[in-house]
Simulated scan of single mutants.
Amino acid sequence: MCVTSGDAYVTHSRVQFCWWAALVAIVAFLSACAHERVDPAYLALVEQQAELPPTGELGPGDRFLLRVYGEEGLSGEFTVGADGTINFPHIGRFRAEGLTCTDVEVELTLGLGQHVLKDPNVQCTIMEYNSKRIFIFGEVREPGTFPYKNNISIIEAFALAGGFSERASTNNTKLTRVVDGVEIQVRVPLQEIVEGRQRNLRLLPGDIIFVPESAY
């Protein structure tokens, strides 16, 4: 308390202490408010991401693993060719570009069921998207271009880039994305995301992330 019990007299030093305590509290409050300030565009992207369409369509250069249970000779890795097709035993060449892994499973299940197997069980697993990329530059340990992974988050992307450098200004990270044909830039509150105080963001193919250098 600023006034001692039973004494209306407040010393000069005690008054100074009270003013100093009040000032510290005000500064702390204002700093906290500033720290919590988040780009509304980022919040909008987070809210909209549940409505985004799937981004797992295959393209040239993408690698995936196909397993036909009980049929080792039909299982293995495949890469979508430059013409957008793969060549599968007993089925021949068919267009995989634009299909998802689930679509490929359906196509092969139908094809194998008609020509080879009575009740085929096909599983498709993406190994690497080479037709889709994300770009991470600035104050990270390993900047560069990385293959897109389905549903990859911005935190996972920074793990691919080796994490931040010591000079990184994490809360001033910029995300550049094309939305409906228009390029937008959004400030990403990465420190708050790491601390669990803001929601993570799902990246899309073609996203560009730049981490600036801290002014301090």
Rank of each mutant, 00 (worst) to 15 (best):
G70N: 08
Y148K: 04
E128F: 07
V179S: 15
E195R: 11
L204C: 11
L52T: 02
D119A: 11
P53D: 08
D62Y: 04
M127Q: 15
R95V: 05
L65T: 06
F88P: 01
T173A: 15
I152A: 07
L201Q: 04
V140Q: 08
S169P: 00
D180M: 14
E142V: 05
C18F: 06
D62K: 08
T170V: 13
T85S: 15
N87K: 10
I208G: 15
N121H: 11
L23M: 12
R199W: 01
S153T: 06
I154G: 12
A159C: 06
N172V: 00
F158N: 06
P120Y: 02
R141W: 07
D207T: 01
V194R: 13
L112D: 01
V24W: 08
K118Q: 12
Y148S: 04
F164T: 02
A168M: 07
E128M: 08
R197L: 02
T55Q: 15
S169F: 08
V116G: 01
Y129K: 03
A25Y: 02
F94S: 08
P60G: 15
Q123W: 01
L45D: 02
Q49G: 05
I86F: 13
G196D: 03
I152D: 01
L110H: 13
V122Q: 04
L108E: 03
G181L: 08
D119H: 06
L110V: 07
P212R: 06
F210K: 02
V106K: 12
L117C: 01
N172G: 10
I86Q: 10
G163T: 01
N130Q: 15
H115E: 10
C101W: 00
Y216V: 07
S214M: 04
W20I: 02
Q191C: 08
N87M: 08
A28H: 10
L201T: 00
A41Y: 04
A44N: 13
A96G: 07
K118Y: 07
L66R: 05
V116C: 02
H90K: 03
N151G: 11
R202E: 07
Q114S: 12
T4V: 00
Q16N: 11
Q185E: 15
T55M: 13
H12D: 10
D207M: 01
L99R: 13
E107Y: 13
Y9W: 00
D180I: 03
I91L: 14
G92E: 06
V15D: 09
R63V: 05
T176D: 09
C2S: 11
P54D: 11
E105L: 01
E36F: 12
T4D: 13
G113S: 07
L30I: 10
L117Q: 03
P53K: 06
R14F: 02
Y69A: 12
F29T: 10
T102K: 07
E97H: 14
K149L: 07
V106I: 11
H35K: 12
R37T: 10
G162D: 09
I184C: 14
G181W: 09
A8E: 09
V10L: 03
D83N: 15
V211S: 09
F137V: 01
G144R: 12
S169R: 11
R187Y: 04
T100W: 04
A25F: 09
E107T: 12
T173K: 05
I152Q: 02
T100A: 11
E97Y: 09
